[in-house]
């Protein structure tokens, strides 16, 4: 794999989520990421039953109700690297087991659809908003199973990083060099699963 050194006068910011490594490999760059399916399910619509987002770190489950009345259910990723956007049934079973621990009343709910989104996970489960060893190439990646609520803020900081070729103080700790220095972000230990 031949690595590019310099994109000369161009600047490229990559925000490719689960496919970040695919883009990085085009430039001959390896990232500290593994891409895995994160499955979610949506049930048939029912009358209002929960009016908040419920997330349990104890049994590892997520459930909320959409405006249309569907239950939106999720949990952890599959174990293996995959870009197949499917995932395995035993993960679905584990997810629904956890939901039923919290809400036995949902045992007869019928699920309408299920899918797997590909998420890029860092070894410390924290994102990378950073320059790279290739001049002019920037990555905003590694958000894993989180990141949705951080999207506007991360975009702002990523723009700052690209414009100045230096990180903002808020994303300085999220540089890619932390995997060389050993100064990892302690999110797995601090938050376990919830983001």
């Amino acid at each position: 794999m031949k690595q590019l050194r310099d994109l000369s006068k161009q600047k490229i910011g990559v925000v490719a989520a689960g496919h970040s490594s695919v883009i990085a490999n085009m430039a001959g760059l390896k990232l500290p990421l593994e891409s895995k399916p994160l499955q979610a399910l949506v049930s048939e619509p029912v009358k209002p039953i929960i009016d908040t987002v419920v997330m349990s770190n104890a049994v590892h489950a997520y459930v909320s109700q959409s405006d249309k009345g569907e239950l939106v259910i999720g949990a952890g990723t599959d174990d293996y690297v995959s870009y197949s956007q499917k995932g395995s049934h035993d993960i679905v079973e584990g997810t629904l087991n956890a939901i039923l621990e919290l809400y036995p009343i949902f045992s007869r709910m019928r699920m309408l659809r299920q899918w797997g989104g590909i998420v890029d996970i860092c070894p410390d489960a924290s994102p990378i908003i950073s320059k790279t060893s290739i001049k002019g190439l920037y990555f905003n990646c590694g958000w894993g199973t989180g990141g949705f609520k951080a999207t506007p803020g991360s975009g702002d900081l990523f723009a700052h990083t690209i414009a100045n070729d230096e990180p903002h103080k808020l994303n300085a700790a999220f540089n890619i060099n932390r995997f060389v220095s050993g100064d990892l972000v302690d999110e797995h230990g601090a938050a376990a699963v919830a983001h």
Partner: peptide, 21 residues
């Protein structure tokens, strides 16, 4: 070197396609 340790411990090809695992 620190770079070589990082390469060994953390950097992955994470291939979309045929992968050895």
């Amino acid at each position: 070197s620190d770079d070589e340790w990082a390469e060994y411990l953390f950097m992955r090809k994470n291939i979309k396609g045929v992968q050895f695992e």
